[in-house]
């Protein structure tokens, strides 16, 4: 239901307004979405969460050559309550999985997950024969962006984070709410 084909009386009608909000065509709301999204994507604060080799490449991304902070991501947070995005950098094993899940739960909405490296995507070099490695971090927490590599180059991580920014740009309040509901139901 578009905004143009609406009758005057229906503007005062609360039920119709709810309908309109759900379809997400309200001028005011979309503008607010734009502003919020711009704010969110320009200050993505990652959690310092590194389990193995990919963590070093994540550090190198923050280092002078590849300067993470050009895109507003330089503030690594040690506490999950202050972080927006968790970059799962490295292998997750059975003993670590509950800790990762708890860290994810402790983060406040909106929260995003980037699976960095082959281990976080699928178990990588430890996919076969290993008795303790989780075969992909998506078995534990929902993932937004996958960055392949073993370990990925800093440029690859930067590209992945820029893709995450693009994803945030297209969000609306409703899509965000749906996303949260979907993640919680998992």
């Amino acid at each position: 239901m578009g905004i143009k084909g609406m009758k005057y009386e229906e503007f005062k009608d609360n039920e119709s307004l709810e309908l309109l909000r759900e379809s997400g065509t309200n001028v005011l709301l979309t503008t607010i979405d734009d502003v919020i999204n711009w704010g969110r994507k320009s200050s993505l604060w990652p959690l310092t969460f590194a389990t193995s080799c990919c963590g070093i490449e994540m550090m190198m991304t923050g280092a002078p050559r590849h300067d993470f902070s050009r895109f507003g991501m330089e503030v690594y947070r040690a506490s999950p309550r202050q972080a927006d995005v968790i970059v799962v950098a490295g292998t997750i094993v059975n003993k670590m999985a509950p800790v990762l899940k708890r860290l994810y739960d402790q983060m406040s909405e909106p929260k995003y997950v980037v699976a960095m490296g082959a281990c976080a995507i699928s178990g990588g070099p430890f996919f076969l024969n290993s008795y303790s490695v989780i075969k992909g971090v998506e078995h534990v927490i929902p993932v937004d962006v996958y960055v392949p590599g073993c370990p990925p180059r800093p440029e690859a991580l930067l590209y992945g984070m820029l893709q995450l920014q693009r994803m945030i740009e297209t969000e609306t309040i409703h899509s965000r709410r749906e996303r949260v509901a979907k993640n919680n139901s998992k």
């Binding site: 094993v93 003993k95 303790s132």
Partner: peptide, 15 residues
């Protein structure tokens, strides 16, 4: 310890 134990020594026996 053991939060990043991947069993590399055991894996080596099969490769």
């Amino acid at each position: 310890i053991g939060y990043i134990h991947r069993g590399i020594e055991k894996m080596c026996e099969s490769i």
